[in-house]
Amino acid sequence: MSFQAYLDNIQTKTGKTPTEFKKLAEKKGFLTKGKLTAGIKAGEIVQWLKDEFELGHGHAMALFALFKGVKKEGDK
């Protein structure tokens, strides 16, 4: 499955776009000016996404990769 397919599946399940997730992550303090806040660990973000949006581990990690800047929308 491509990275973009993960993002598409997340949007289908939650109704939220990657941009909306970035805004929510900023409100939670996980991102600062679009960048991962220093000291934030993947586990914190994954747990938030699992608890609040019922995402699986792989989908939550895809969003973490997006937040971290390792991947971007449209990546395969």
Rank of each mutant, 00 (worst) to 15 (best):
D75K: 07
G43V: 09
A65L: 14
D75Y: 00
N9H: 08
K28F: 02
T32E: 15
V46C: 01
I40V: 15
G69K: 00
K71A: 00
A25M: 08
G39L: 05
K68Y: 05
Y6K: 11
W48L: 01
L24Y: 11
F64D: 04
E54R: 06
L49N: 09
E73S: 12
A5K: 15
K23E: 14
A25Y: 07
K50R: 07
K33L: 08
H57T: 13
D75H: 03
K41Y: 02
E54K: 06
F21R: 05
G58Q: 09
E20F: 05
L36S: 09
L55M: 07
L55Y: 01
V46P: 03
L31N: 06
K27M: 12
I45Y: 14
H57V: 07
A62K: 02
K35M: 14
G43D: 12
G74K: 13
N9D: 09
K23D: 15
V70R: 09
K27P: 01
A62T: 06
Q47L: 07
T17R: 07
K72W: 00
E26T: 12
P18C: 09
Q11H: 10
K13L: 11
H57L: 14
S2I: 09
E20Y: 03
G34N: 08
Q11M: 12
K23G: 15
A60C: 02
F21E: 05
G56A: 07
K68Q: 05
A25K: 06
K22I: 10
G69E: 02
K68V: 01
F21H: 06
K68W: 03
G39D: 12
I10L: 10
M61D: 11
G15R: 03
T14V: 01
H57C: 08
L55G: 04
Y6P: 00
F53P: 03
T37Y: 12
F30H: 12
T12E: 14
K16Y: 00
L66H: 05
G34S: 12
F67W: 04
K68E: 08
A62H: 11
T17H: 07
T19K: 13
K22L: 15
G39F: 08
L66W: 04
M1K: 11
E73W: 01
E73Y: 02
E44Y: 08
Q4E: 14
I45R: 11
G43C: 02
T12R: 15
T19L: 15
S2T: 13
H57E: 14
I40E: 10
A60W: 04
T17P: 10
P18Q: 10
T12K: 11
T37C: 09
D8R: 10
K16T: 01
D51N: 11
V70F: 05
A38N: 07
K28Y: 06
E26M: 11
T17S: 14
G43M: 10
A25F: 09
T14C: 05
Q47K: 14
L24R: 10
T17A: 08
F64W: 01
G15Y: 00
K35T: 15
L49T: 04
G56L: 02
D8N: 11
K22E: 14
T17Q: 02
K13A: 12
D8C: 04
K68F: 01
L55V: 03
